[in-house]
Amino acid sequence: MTFDAEACAAYIKLSGRSATVEDSYPLEVSLPGITDVILDFDADRHLLGIEILGRLGDGPESILAALSSGRLADALQTEKISCPAALRENPQIKIHNI
């Protein structure tokens, strides 16, 4: 996960392969401390990554809480979007500040 402290934005790259984002759309979800969740897809509708925007001035804690609680994974499942197991099973997250 990369984290931009100035924007309070995190990006989780889900695909190890090089692919072009062809479509992005917001996930309609209400998570404490999260203002927006944007999903990136390739041309074949495979989920490539997730951008998570927190409240300006907050650190990555609210984003990490949404991930570790499983609430983000639940929201993906509700939208019938295949959720990588790593997002549901207590993910091991390394933060790379950008």
Rank of each mutant, 00 (worst) to 15 (best):
E51R: 11
I63Q: 00
E89P: 07
R45Y: 11
I93D: 00
S18I: 14
I95Y: 01
I63A: 01
F3N: 01
L76K: 03
Y25S: 15
A19V: 00
S30D: 14
E22H: 14
R45S: 12
A43N: 10
L48F: 06
S30K: 14
D4E: 12
E51D: 12
A66H: 02
M1K: 11
S15V: 13
L14Y: 07
E61H: 09
I12P: 00
G16M: 08
P91S: 08
L76S: 00
G49D: 04
H96N: 12
G33D: 04
I81A: 04
D42V: 06
A9P: 03
L48G: 04
A85Y: 08
P32F: 07
L48W: 04
G49Q: 02
V29T: 09
E89I: 12
A5T: 10
M1Q: 08
D23G: 12
I93C: 05
G59N: 10
L72Q: 00
C83Y: 01
A65H: 06
S68M: 11
S24T: 13
V21Q: 07
A5H: 10
I38F: 06
A75Y: 03
R88A: 14
T78W: 09
N90I: 07
L87W: 02
H46T: 08
Y11L: 07
E6R: 13
L39E: 04
F41V: 05
D40A: 10
Y25V: 09
A10G: 10
T78R: 15
L31M: 06
T2P: 00
D44S: 14
S30V: 09
S24M: 11
A5Q: 11
I98S: 10
I95K: 03
Q77D: 15
L47M: 05
Q77F: 12
E28Q: 15
L39Q: 02
E79A: 14
G59K: 08
R55A: 15
V37K: 02
D44K: 14
R45D: 15
V37Y: 01
I50Y: 02
T20C: 11
F41S: 05
C83E: 00
K94G: 08
S18V: 13
N90K: 15
L64Q: 00
L64A: 04
A7P: 04
E51C: 07
R17V: 12
